[in-house]
Design a protein around this nucleic acid. Structure first.
Lengths: 307, 307
DNA sequence: GTATTACATACCAGAACGGATATGAATTTT
DNA sequence: AAAATTCATATCCGTTCTGGTATGTAATAC
């Protein structure tokens, strides 16, 4: 790569591409028009191609510009994220432990595990974040998280990561206690269409399992669906309406115990999948991370959980 | 982001992190040791944190450094890729059309389509590249490819992309003509374990389908497996040995026609999936891209293919 | 204690950087 | 045809950059 390329060149290039005008870009960047022109000229010189073409009395991005634009955006985006990550890391002083939790974990064993872990007295600060699977795994890969607890993601999303299974669970069809479908003996899956159905969002780990299950059972499209990852929303909604909530069984485990929510009697063995710990494959684990991992293992050995 | 950060800072930082030594990094970068030290100091200053800590008479990367390292690598990697892309784009003059082809497409209709397309006389240069699904889709998203032809990828890999289905196909279990399993009437899937099995690699689109199918049918692990994406290898291997090749039916379609390869009689309807065109969702398609897409559509309408 | 190793700091000088202003050239508008 | 718009080019100038050399300091080795 040509060492003369500076971030300034990328910034300017991106701005011109966005504004489709040298003049406006100059204004946006608080520079004069010739300064912008020259910066673009330099970048074109370094790259050996024209990034823009003249069109009338304006400009238009060239095919080279088009391809370079995406990479340029990637590049400055990466640094921005890097700076942000550091800012975040600085706020949480100490040797911090950052855990990404998928819903099935955060609703079940994770709270108990945390108690045990804090008792172990490592003195480390622990952060627990929730979010979409894709985002969590990216953060893990980039070192912004140390551990992700939840369902095993699709294999192609796991490069550079390692997975340690803890137990396996199925997806369940959760409804409020006293729901009409509960009293029916042999109901058909197609009857789901009569109710509002809460689905996991597209980005979630379990969504492909759900899609596949529905397809396999000939359910083409459910019209009344709400996509949500918020389990607090799901819980509240299902308890108040006759909706059906398609969700990891672990998420509603406490409510099933207490009898407020029940599962429809559906054979969902096809949706069984492993729940466990996802970590970076490369780096050696921190001390506190090892302790956390051990605590989780121990806890589940005692609880002996199967869903 | 602090505008004072230069690529030079990132380069130097990465080198020091890699070498775990200021002196060695200086040598690798053809600089003096103080120059490297100062560059690191500057970067630390801009970021507001220490990237390295003293350890004995050497240094060790700090937790902040660890985090920033990955992002820094991302950033310069992006620019490098951008420059490479341009270099590639320059070699193929004209308004080029870059197509990523998954095996099932490149073995079947794509060659014929290309003939039709060139006859249309757009004069555009066409490049066809093959590779792992993940890589192809990333390249598509970044604008290094215009079109990917093949199986629909998992939904979470499709952000920013749109898919147009052409036909659907199943995965097949291909063996040489005269293979022992062909004469058996009702054989069990578990007998596969007696033969060498060629599997698609982890990164491929169809691997999840295969895994799921095997799991569903209680095949835990096949011991004698070879993972390959090379269909030339697969073809050669299967014709010479009693191996079983798990592959998209389209890939072996010509050989089945000619009778050199046959499919085992296994109900693999569960593995049915859509084959089609994947394009960027945003940008308006080029003229030559539209023509190509139309050519493919027309061709398949005539061929009326179902596998 | 002395030597050695490895990084840190201070200071210097030429190169380049990065902005400005003034002006030119091509197109479109009036 | 003249005016207006938009980008390109030329030249200038203070500042920052980025390398160097010389030297300091802390930890380890002998």
């Amino acid at each position: 790569m040509d060492g003369r390329i500076k971030f300034r060149h990328l910034q300017t290039f991106i701005e011109v591409a966005r504004q489709k005008s040298v003049g406006r870009a100059a204004e946006a960047l608080a520079l004069t028009q010739p300064a912008v022109t020259r910066t673009i000229r330099e970048l074109e010189d370094y790259l050996g191609v024209d990034l823009f073409e003249k069109e009338g009395r304006g400009i238009r991005i060239s095919r080279f510009g088009e391809v370079f634009l995406r990479h340029a955006g990637e590049s400055i985006g990466a640094v921005k994220r890097g700076v942000d990550s550091i800012a975040q890391a600085r706020n949480s002083m100490g040797p911090p432990l950052r855990i990404g939790a998928l819903p099935t974990a955060s609703a079940t064993f994770l709270p108990d595990v945390m108690v045990d872990f804090l008792k172990a007295g490592t003195g480390s600060l622990v952060t627990i974040v929730t979010g979409e699977n894709r985002w969590l795994l990216d953060a893990l890969r980039l070192g912004d998280l140390d551990l992700v607890v939840g369902r095993l993601a699709a294999p192609e999303r796991m490069t550079g990561l390692q997975f340690e299974p803890l137990y396996s669970e199925e997806i369940g069809f959760a409804v409020r206690a006293g729901h009409p479908l509960l009293s029916r003996r042999n109901f058909s899956l197609s009857e789901l269409a009569h109710y509002i159905v809460l689905m996991p969002t597209q980005g979630s780990v379990i969504r492909p399992f759900v899609d596949r299950f529905l397809l396999t059972n000939g359910i083409a499209d459910l019209s009344n669906t709400i996509e949500t990852v918020s389990d607090s929303f799901g819980r509240a909604f299902v308890e108040r309406h006759d909706a059906v909530w398609i969700i990891s069984r672990g998420v509603v485990f406490p409510e099933i115990q207490s009898g407020r929510i029940a599962l429809l009697d559906i054979d969902s063995s096809e949706t069984r999948g492993a729940v466990g710990l996802t970590m970076r494959a490369d780096a050696a684990p921190t001390l506190s991370l090892s302790i956390m991992v051990n605590t989780i293992r121990e806890h589940l050995k005692v609880a002996g959980r199967v869903l």
